[in-house]
């Protein structure tokens, strides 16, 4: 589903991604972790073309992302993305947030879009908040709406960019529950996350990055029990014991 080959990217002289290769098969969950500044968020933003890259290739569902001829809006409509800071549109109600792209991008009617929105709000447990504005919701609720907004496009895969790191600790669980439930339904997911409990529970593989490189790309159990590199061991020791 997602195939990343020899990806490199520079900001001026600084190399932020160094020859990264990995993949996510259909129905798989892959968790990307690593210290801050390691290039995880940049990597995941390359997947739907929000960040351009200098070298290498990415294909998503057979479509080449870096190809200048690619219709990026059309590709992005099929790849859902959930952001660290939710990025709901604050001037629109929850139901409008869910309906906007369904109507403008997929060409659904208002009624269709609204019905799909309500069904998804129900799924993330927020049906009664449809008329509220993002500013009236808690962080956890906003992130669940953001997931519903991504799902409303019927994506072939979902990208998560640190979906829980801007949340208060007591709200992390409600968002992870939704993500676990999604994983169980067979959704293809690539998640930048430090939630190792989540990774253990649903991830097929864990990709560990440091200084723009993919240091390890291993089955989840193996990564947690016997990380191959010293850097991964140090990282795990640090985040598991805090």
């Amino acid at each position: 589903m997602i195939e990343i080959r020899n990806l490199s990217k520079w900001y001026g002289q600084t190399r932020v991604l160094a020859d990264c290769s990995t993949h996510v098969a259909k129905g798989e969950v892959v968790v990307v972790c690593g210290p801050s500044g390691s290039g995880k968020s940049t990597l995941i933003k390359c997947v739907n073309g929000l960040e351009p890259f200098a070298r290498g290739s990415i294909t998503v569902d057979g479509v080449s992302v870096g190809d200048p001829g690619t219709d990026l809006p059309r590709l992005r409509a099929r790849v859902g993305m959930v952001f660290q800071h939710f990025e709901l549109f604050p001037h629109m109600s929850v139901e409008q947030n869910l309906a906007l792209a369904q109507i403008k991008v997929l060409g659904r009617s208002k009624d269709e879009a609204a019905a799909r929105g309500v069904a998804l709000l129900d799924r993330v447990g927020l049906r009664e908040h449809a008329r509220k504005f993002p500013g009236q919701l808690s962080g956890g609720q906003q992130q669940r709406v953001a997931i519903a907004r991504a799902l409303a496009m019927d994506p072939v895969c979902l990208l998560f960019d640190e979906p829980t790191s801007a949340l208060d600790p007591e709200m992390i669980g409600e968002v992870l529950d939704v993500m676990v439930e999604l994983a169980r339904t067979g959704m293809t997911m690539m998640c930048v996350s430090h939630e190792m409990g989540f990774a253990r529970k649903v991830a097929k593989r864990v990709v560990f990055m440091d200084h723009g490189e993919i240091v390890e790309d291993a089955p989840a159990a193996q990564f947690f029990e016997a990380p191959a590199s010293e850097r991964a061991r140090t990282f795990l020791a640090r985040i598991l014991h805090h």
Binding site: R76, M81, V105
Partner: peptide, 25 residues
């Protein structure tokens, strides 16, 4: 900047992003 990214990530074009997300705010 995330507002623009979020709108683009949903498949909106740049003009649609300005019309519906950026300029109203």
């Amino acid at each position: 900047r995330g507002q623009r990214d979020a709108a683009l990530a949903l498949g909106l074009t740049l003009p649609q992003t300005y019309r519906h997300v950026i300029l109203p705010q």
